[in-house]
Every structure is written in structure tokens, then in C-alpha cells.
Design a protein around this nucleic acid. Structure first.
Lengths: 209, 209
DNA sequence: TGTAAAAACTTACGCCGCTAGTTTAAGCAC
DNA sequence: GTGCTTAAACTAGCGGCGTAAGTTTTTACA
């Protein structure tokens, strides 16, 4: 096939297919040849639309970040804005776990990432936090959110009870996997509560830097 | 060469070489052929000592986790134990950043990971925290530590000021990279303070579940 | 002393990201 | 309308990857 009358590929179609493939089968499954096959095309044809595979994966990451609700900072106290944004971010990452390593590792200089940074940082600055502290708080929230999305803490303990013979306090650790969602969500919620409440206390005491 | 009189490889030598290679050039540089070359051997020879590449990388991760100081829980209040352990963990990951994605993503069922879980969880239980809360606190600390080790928040904002024209609050974001260490460390320290202090407050008020 | 296992080797398979060069259609200038 | 450039598909192929299979030689033990 030479050039078709109607283009088979667009950047949008490629990113959409890559996102579906990554969600369904993970990052490793998303090879250029496999992705091309899903789109009914040969592998190298993708290079007519993206220079590298990394660009495609980045675009998928960008599309995921764009789903986070940053409108919550408008019309809400900074505390409530932070809490609602964090929950939205957390939910988006939970819905697309396979792309999280890309978000957590790489820089956030894509447009949606910058828009999010602007919203978070702006809300903190306008609430009266110092620039340095606002930066710290933003980074800290990112640590909690991406850290919790990266891997299940509960699933880290496998179902074989014998593994824990040498560790008396862990003798029931194998039960964790069964309560995976509750454990992981509980830890995230606790972290969010602790961080926002203690920041709120400092703020109310006038400590804003 | 057939079987040599003195074995050229041992599991220890392989893991050591892999750790050095990963620290120096990153995970991608640590291919079986490259690692074998460093050891003066052909690629497939490694399979006489490890079944898969993943086993080698896991062993490197295990060796890194084993460097974390878990003795700090003995003879210290749970608060101080938690703080010192977190700082030690943080420092170890900062010294070996390339292996962090392996630790953050995968399960922690290697011996050193279990010993660490036992120490953290045990200290919390013996202090009087409920099993559920102790689990949450352990998970939460992991989120903060691995999240902060995964990538520099400050470096996420590149040096081109023009990028931030559309984001008024970010107009000085390009300066962050220059203060990378201070920003990233400040955020981690803030997180540690906030979490431990607010947990301490709850504890002192008798809220331990 | 004979045999089995260990630890190196060579060869090779099927993937991977990506480059180069080819073919045909589309879009535009004259 | 004709010709030129560009776009978007193709095929072929490079070097690298993890790893399987089979070979050779040495060691350790019955």
C-alpha cells in the first residue's frame, strides 16, 4: 500500500489506541509493532506521526493528567480545593495504573501538567502561603498521590502464610491482600487527612512559610 | 572456553556488578550481555546462576533495602524510630536512584523488605496502635519515601522561562532546578514533620485506631 | 574409574525501537 | 491540466534485547 486516499492514522487515533492498549495490557504490551497492528497498519508507519515511541507514551500520560479536575480550586477554600484535587488525581491514577510509572518518574512539563501545577501553586499562593512553602506542599502532595498509585502496599504481601514465620508481627500479613482496596484507600485517606489538617493548623496559627 | 577450573561467576559477583552498573548508568544499561561483558563473560553464562534477568534486578533491590537502618526502632520512642528510619530509607534511595522504580512498583516480599516491614509494624503495634492503623501508617510512610525518591519535583520544570508564559504563577518556576536539592529535601522534611507530628498528636489524645 | 552435575561456551529464535529507501496520492503553482 | 513537493503508507534491514538449546570441559562423588 502506498499513500492511501484517506489517511489511516492521526495523532489522536494513535494516542487513543495506545491508551487503550496500555490500560488493558500494560506498558510492555504497547510496542510499536503491536500498536500498529491494533490500528491496522505496519509498525514504521507510526513514525510519520510521532518521532519516537516516548512521544506517544508521553501523549498518553498527558491525556491522563488532563482528566484531573483542577476546577475545584475555584470557589473553594485552599484546604477543600487541595483535598478535592488530590482525590480527583488519585481516582484518575487508580483508573489508569499502568501509566503511573511514566507520570511518577518523568518531568511534568507537558501542558496539562503545567496547568495543574499552576492551579495548585496559584491556590496556595493566593491563600497566603510563601512561595517556598507552596512549592513544598505541591511536591509533597505529588509524593503522596503518585507513591500511593504506584503499587499496592497490601498486595506486596503474598498469600503464603509460611513466608512470615520468622516475622512474628507479620503472622497475619497474608490476609492483607484480601482487603487490598480498603488498606490502600485507608492509607491514602489517612495521609490526606493528616497532611491537610496539620497544614490547616499551621495556617490558622499564622505559620505560612 | 568450557568449564573453568575456578568459577568465574558467583551470585554475589553478579549482583555486585549489576548494582554498580545500575548506579552508574541506569536500569536500561544493565542488559544481560552488557552485564556479562563487565564480568568478562558471555551473556548466557549468567543463566547458570540466575533463572531470569528479573531475579538479578530483584537481588540488587534487595541489597539496597538491606542498607536501611532498622535498628533505630530499638531503644527509641515510636515517633523517633519512625523518623530516623524514614530518613535512613530516604538517604539510601537518594544514593541509588536508578533502582527506585523497581522498589516502588514491585512487591516487598524479599527478606530485607519483610524484615523492614516487621520492624516498622512491630514498633507501631507495640506502641499501642491498632493493627489497621499500623498498616496504614506503614503504607503511608512508603508512599512518601518512594514518591519523593522517584523523581525530582524541582527538575520537572525546565530552564526555558518562555514555557510558563501562559501560567502567571509559574513565571519563576524555571528557577526551581537551580535549587533542586533544597526544594526536594524541603518537601520531604515537611512531609515527615507533618505526618509524624500529627500522628503524635492523635496518639497523645488517645486516638490510636 | 565411571558418571553426573556444574559452568563456561556458541548458536539461534523472535521480539524490540528505529532508519532508509520506495511508492503512490494529495495539494498547490503556473 | 501539468509538474513539483510533500505526505503517508509500504518493505527491508540494523543492532540490541531476553532467553532457550545444545556443546565442551572440569569437578565431585559413588
Amino acid at each position: 500500500m502506498a499513500r492511501p486516499r484517506q489517511a489511516l492514522l492521526t495523532r489522536e487515533r494513535i494516542v487513543e489506541a495506545a491508551a487503550v492498549l496500555i490500560d488493558a495490557e500494560g506498558l510492555d504490551a504497547c510496542s510499536m509493532r503491536r500498536l500498529a497492528t491494533e490500528l491496522g497498519v505496519q509498525g514504521p508507519s507510526l513514525y510519520n506521526h510521532f518521532a519516537t515511541k516516548a512521544e506517544i507514551v508521553d501523549a498518553v500520560a498527558e491525556a491522563v493528567v488532563a482528566q484531573v479536575d483542577i476546577s475545584v480550586f475555584r470557589g473553594n477554600d485552599w484546604r477543600e480545593g487541595l483535598r478535592l484535587w488530590a482525590k480527583s488525581y488519585h481516582a484518575v491514577l487508580a483508573a489508569h495504573p499502568h501509566i503511573v510509572p511514566v507520570l511518577a518518574t518523568g518531568p511534568g512539563r507537558r501542558p496539562a501538567g503545567l496547568a495543574m501545577a499552576e492551579a495548585v501553586y496559584g491556590a496556595l499562593i493566593e491563600a497566603g502561603w510563601s512561595r517556598a512553602r507552596a512549592t513544598h506542599i505541591g511536591a509533597l502532595m505529588r509524593y503522596l498521590i503518585t507513591g500511593s498509585a504506584l503499587g499496592s502496599f497490601a498486595l506486596g504481601f503474598e498469600a503464603d502464610p509460611d513466608l512470615y514465620d520468622r516475622f512474628p508481627h507479620l503472622h497475619r500479613a497474608h490476609e492483607l491482600a484480601a482487603h487490598r482496596a480498603a488498606v490502600d484507600e485507608g492509607a491514602f485517606e489517612l495521609g490526606l487527612d493528616l497532611l491537610i489538617n496539620s497544614l490547616s493548623d499551621r495556617y490558622d496559627q499564622g505559620v505560612r512559610r
